[in-house]
């Protein structure tokens, strides 16, 4: 009745339900009407085409940053540095977008490619240090986040512009924006980035599950020593994994750079796209299709929450608690698994 596969799909679903229920409970405690609260959230995410457009826009970078975290996880690496790689991708795509003019068919792919390369380069450093010197990738990626934040700011101020806090708008030939999509969604900021994100998920699935290289990457994630014994080059796979993970993160940055905003402005702190990507990857079970669903859920929650204060008086931050609880329940899947098995036994 409950195969292992089914249980694996049930766990995230049950976690989401438990998370939402806990959110309702918290709303009750603080004297809000949970039904009103969640209705406001629903309207804020799907109420009309404008909100739908904004939701999809928010989901787009989440898919890519989720893929980035998930890809590294599959090779047994924890990439907390997605945040920094996002900055680099964002900056690179905008830089290509503002610095010259070219036909769209060259300019746009070039901007996207630049973002992927910049993210990949930022992932290469921790990968190399991990593979060759055994330096813990968690610390190096954390440090790289700060380096990215400050260097990107300095590059915007002193290289791309002359002491301005913001770059110019990217050339239309390098922009993912589309008037058609904007008009369709009552002038939301929806852009063609979601095509890139879905394509990215397809690539990750194909690479990991259908190629020899992907098999090696996963194998290193399962057991480094056994992979080494089987003749695989562990160091090369570790570096490759971080590079590909970084490339996905860079693309997530491009979604903001040449999609949503069209410029890079000096940042005082992190965007949280990378950190939220960790949550997305975890809920999505580190699989490409799971990441899409998880990104969709979190994007919906984040955009929908913006409507909660006005329509139901509930603070936006409630959603952060709900997301945290969902992750917590996913983490405690042992308990849910145990309960399901228990239920299965009694049902017989």
């Amino acid at each position: 009745m409950f195969s292992n596969r089914l249980v694996n799909i049930l766990i995230p679903i049950i976690s989401v339900i438990l998370g939402l229920l806990s959110g309702a409970f918290i709303m009750l405690i603080f004297g809000y009407n949970p039904i009103q609260g969640y209705a406001a959230l629903w309207n804020g995410a799907f109420g009309d085409l404008y909100f739908l457009g904004e939701t999809i826009r928010q989901v787009t970078p989440y898919i890519l940053s989720g893929l980035a975290v998930a890809f590294a996880f599959r090779t047994g690496l924890f990439n907390i540095g997605v945040e920094g790689q996002v900055f680099m991708g964002w900056l690179a795509s905008v830089w290509v977008g503002v610095s010259f003019e070219a036909p769209m068919i060259i300019h746009l792919p070039l901007a996207i490619l630049a973002a992927a390369l910049a993210g990949a380069a930022w992932g290469f450093v921790p990968g190399l240090l991990k593979a060759k010197l055994g330096v813990h990738e968690v610390i190096v990626t954390i440090m790289m986040n700060y380096i990215a934040l400050y260097s990107a700011n300095a590059i915007v101020r002193h290289v791309i512009t002359d002491n301005a806090d913001k770059t110019e708008q990217v050339a239309p030939t390098a922009s993912l924006g589309s008037e058609w999509l904007e008009q369709l969604t009552y002038f939301s900021r929806l852009h063609y980035g979601f095509v890139v994100a879905l394509f990215g998920a397809l690539i990750m699935w194909f690479l990991l599950n259908k190629t020899v290289r992907g098999f090696e990457l996963r194998s290193v994630g399962f057991n480094k020593d056994a992979s080494h014994y089987a003749g695989m080059n562990v160091s090369r796979n570790i570096i490759l994994s971080m590079v590909i993970s970084g490339a996905f993160a860079g693309l997530a940055g491009a979604m903001e750079g040449i999609g949503t905003f069209g410029y890079y402005s000096v940042k005082s702190g992190f965007t949280n796209i990378g950190f939220d990507g960790i949550a997305v990857a975890l809920l999505g079970g580190n699989a490409a299709i799971g990441v899409i669903f998880a990104a969709f859920l979190f994007g919906t929650l984040k955009i929908g929450a913006l409507n909660m204060p006005t329509q139901a008086g509930v603070p936006t931050e409630l959603v952060e608690i709900v997301i945290a609880l969902i992750i917590f329940f996913v983490a405690s899947s042992y308990m849910i698994r145990w309960l399901i098995l228990r239920f299965k036994k009694e049902g017989k």
Binding site: I26, F78, F275, I278, A279, L282, P315, E317, L318, V319, E320, I321, V322, I323, A324, L325, I327, F328, V330, A331, S332, S333, Y334
Partner: peptide, 21 residues
């Protein structure tokens, strides 16, 4: 027996969410 990294990430989100809420 949760994955400790996942649980730690949940703690980070939860603390900030609760605090701001």
């Amino acid at each position: 027996r949760a994955d400790q990294v996942v649980s730690g990430v949940a703690i980070n989100f939860l603390a900030l969410g609760l605090g701001l809420f």
